Amino acid sequence: MNREKYDKLRGNVESLLEKKSSSELIKEGLRFTFPTKGRSVFLFIFLLVIFLLYHSFFIENGDVIKNYLGLVKEINEIVIPTFAVIITGYAIFQALANGTALITLITVDEGEKTKFEIYNKFFFGISILYLFIIVFNLLIYIIFSNVPSDWSIPFFTSKTNNTLAALLISLYIVFIIHSLIELKSFVYNLYQCFKINATTAGIEYLKNLNEVERQRKKALEEEEKKP
Rank of each mutant, 00 (worst) to 15 (best):
Y130C: 00
Y54G: 10
Y191R: 03
M1S: 11
F51T: 02
N146T: 08
E110T: 11
L43P: 01
Y6E: 15
T36K: 08
T36S: 08
T82I: 04
A219Q: 07
N137E: 15
N67P: 05
F124L: 12
F51I: 01
F156A: 06
P35L: 09
Y68S: 04
L168K: 09
I133C: 14
T114C: 03
I65H: 04
I45V: 14
L25M: 12
E204W: 03
I92P: 02
V174R: 01
I128C: 10
F57T: 09
G62I: 00
K8P: 00
N208Y: 09
K184F: 14
F194W: 10
E211C: 12
F136A: 15
E77V: 13
N137T: 04
I133E: 14
L69Q: 03
R3K: 11
A95Y: 14
I128E: 05
E28L: 02
V13W: 06
V72M: 06
A101Q: 01
F123E: 02
E4M: 07
L102A: 02
W151S: 12
V49L: 11
T157S: 14
E4V: 06
I196D: 00
G99Y: 03
N67T: 13
I143G: 04
A201G: 12
I143M: 08
R10H: 12
T36R: 10
T100H: 10
L138F: 15
S179K: 03
F156L: 14
F57Y: 09
H55W: 14
N98Y: 06
P35D: 05
I153S: 04
I177D: 07
I140R: 10
H55M: 12
F186P: 00
E182K: 06
F123T: 01
Q192E: 08
K159P: 08
H178V: 05
T82M: 07
N208S: 12
P154K: 01
E112Q: 14
